[in-house]
Design a binder for these strands. Sequence first.
DNA 1: GGCCAGGTGTACC
DNA 2: GGTACACATGGC
Length: 307
Amino acid sequence: MERTDTTHRIQVEDYDLAATVTSGQAFRWRPSGTGWESAIQGTWVRIEASEPGILTATTATPQTDWRWLEHYLQSHVRLADVIATFPPDPPLLEAVQACPGLRLLRQDPWECLAGFILSSTKQIVQIQQCIELLCERAGQRLEAPPRSSILHAFPSADSVAQLGETALRECKMGFRAPYLLNAARRVADGSLDLEALRALPTAEARDRLVGLHGVGRKIADCVLLFAYGRQDAFPADVWILKVLRHLYFPKRAPSPRRLLRFVETHFGPNAGYAQQFLFHHARVHLGSSLGKPTKPKPKPRAPAASL
DNA sequence: GGCCAGGTGTACC
DNA sequence: GGTACACATGGC
């Protein structure tokens, strides 16, 4: 007979839960006492690094099988094996040493895709706010402790599609609202089968994702890495490009295209993990010393031809 | 108030 | 292959 329980202990090695859930790969983790809470596949969960080598998870409803959570956390991954595949270069090793236990999660593809569609030119806090509004509006109410800050599941593509553009704009999505709506419709009507992408080679899966309006290389790579576990995918945003230039090409400024080519050959089969270390290290430890990410500045517009 | 934010689409050259 | 700009919204 299966045992049911609302708490579960997961043995881990080199797992920094706080760094992992705040590293910009997932948007629905909130501090909860000395731990973190979120909703994963329609289940409210709270996790705490209760003692060394143990993550203790709590749910509001009894579970017989906790594999869904272990899969999400990727708690079985031996980080040392991943790091062993990295090239022996000083900047990367420094980032690795600065963020011990930083992990990649394995998220639901739809939630991940939707989240990153909303991420473009938004700060992480604003992405979080926008997603919470969407969840409150269209996500199913969860069974959760009363004062929990996560009370709704992430809405299905169907639910988002039924919401319509006006309601999505009310969730402060701005110009991203039609992008998300279109993606939701494509997933809901089956013309984009997110499950089928699992079987495709990375490049082909990427092409399918980029076929969506509002999804370019960067967002597609986020979904490939954070939801499909394609660890060779390397999401290259303005920060990472800045970091790469700073660390690897201080004397010249290769174009983003050339930098991507460098990434493909340099970092190896777990380039995505390397990206996560470089990104998190730069964001948390280097901060402003790196300067703002360089972005072409729009020229001042010509004054309107009128008095 | 102006600038900027884990980008992308479109219009140009 | 490259560059420039618009696209909403909120925080500083």
